[in-house]
């Protein structure tokens, strides 16, 4: 096998390397690949000095053709000075025999996507062996898949929002929420099931939250939930309706004395200090009570607002107690009963 130089004509060279540069011993570009010429547009490559049009960024210190010949066969990073939108080309330069200069082959590297768009490159501008088409294909496939996933995320988000909207549970305490309370009350009113209603507002909860932090506050709310569940029956509805407000609906329980007893026990239990990570949390509760049989035509809104009024009467009377709506009315003012 002979080891002599190989001859290749320019057209064949261009076919294999459409982004090559043949730089003569004097540093002048003798020929340039068709894709490079397309990218440079109006800027004439052939006949120009290589270092006028290109800067070798890496390795450093390559300022002359002799420097380039010293880096024979190494990977180069080359910046075209006249093509603004191409950040950097990847290249390799090999010495040509005698003193004929160097043959440089370039590629776009990751900039290929931008280059294709800016310079309207087509399949024919890439060597048959170039993986540019596969890269472009992958970018498009990835984009299509990502779009599909984004839409799926939106659909799932929508489904989650809808599910949350329909949820009946308060996530922090596991109690029923305001919506569940409305459903339970309107069902009982529709079916004419009598019930007692207790509106419970925590006293000093804000102080716990402010001094011991939200984690302590959350802990206290969970303790309250346990207490309320322990003092009610399975068929009762225990709901958290606001930050520190709770409503309990006692199905078939309309005896004021019994309701008062329950309220008293709830207040007693809630007044017991609880321990959160070594910190003592002290709260209490004020309670307002209404009973559906006190109304000719009970309505959920009216009963809740009356219970609220009774609750505020409890607060004003010194907290830590319960009042029944209507029970404290002065006898001469029957229409304003609290």
């Amino acid at each position: 096998m002979t080891k002599g130089p190989m001859q290749i004509d320019r057209q064949a060279l261009n076919c294999v390397m459409p982004m090559h540069l043949w730089v003569s011993g004097r540093g002048v570009i003798e020929s340039a690949g068709s894709t490079l010429r397309k990218v440079f547009g109006a800027v004439q490559l052939e006949g120009a000095s290589f270092f006028d049009l290109f800067e070798v960024r890496r390795p450093g210190g390559v300022l002359t053709l002799a420097d380039m010949r010293r880096h024979d066969g190494e990977r180069l990073q080359i910046i075209p000075k006249e093509v603004g939108d191409v950040q950097g080309l990847r290249g390799i330069a090999v010495c040509l025999p005698a003193n004929e200069g160097v043959l440089v082959n370039l590629s776009f590297g990751i900039d290929v996507i931008k280059a294709v768009a800016t310079h309207h490159l087509t399949d024919a501008d890439f060597a048959a062996t170039d993986l540019a088409m596969e890269l472009l294909y992958l970018v498009e496939a990835k984009t299509a898949v990502t779009d599909e996933l984004r839409q799926m995320n939106l659909r799932l988000q929508g489904a989650r929002d809808a599910a949350e909207e329909q949820a009946l549970t308060d996530t922090l305490t596991g109690l029923r929420n305001r919506r569940a309370l409305d459903v339970a009350m309107s069902m009982m009113i529709d079916r004419k099931v009598p019930f007692g209603l207790m509106h419970i507002d925590l006293d000093y909860f804000k102080a716990v939250n402010d001094t011991l932090g939200h984690a302590a506050g959350d802990f206290v709310l969970q303790v309250v939930a346990k207490v309320l569940l322990s003092q009610t029956r399975a068929g009762d509805t225990v709901a958290r309706v606001g930050g520190d407000e709770f409503v309990v609906v006692f199905k078939d329980l309309t005896d004021p004395d019994k309701l008062f007893n329950i309220a008293k026990r709830v207040v007693e239990k809630l007044t017991e200090p609880s321990d959160f990570q070594g910190q003592v949390c002290r709260i209490s509760a004020s309670i307002g009570i209404t009973i559906s049989t006190d109304y000719a035509q009970p309505s959920a809104d009216k009963m809740l607002s009356d219970a609220d009024e009774a609750l505020y009467a409890s607060k004003n009377a010194g907290r830590g107690q319960a009042k029944l709506f209507g029970n404290v009315a002065p006898p001469d003012l029957p229409e304003k009963r609290v």
Binding site: D123, M133, E140, A144, D147
Partner: peptide, 12 residues
């Protein structure tokens, strides 16, 4: 248009 484009990458 995504699938058409992906198929067109198959050849000139």
């Amino acid at each position: 248009d995504a699938l058409r484009r992906l198929l067109r990458f198959g050849g000139v």
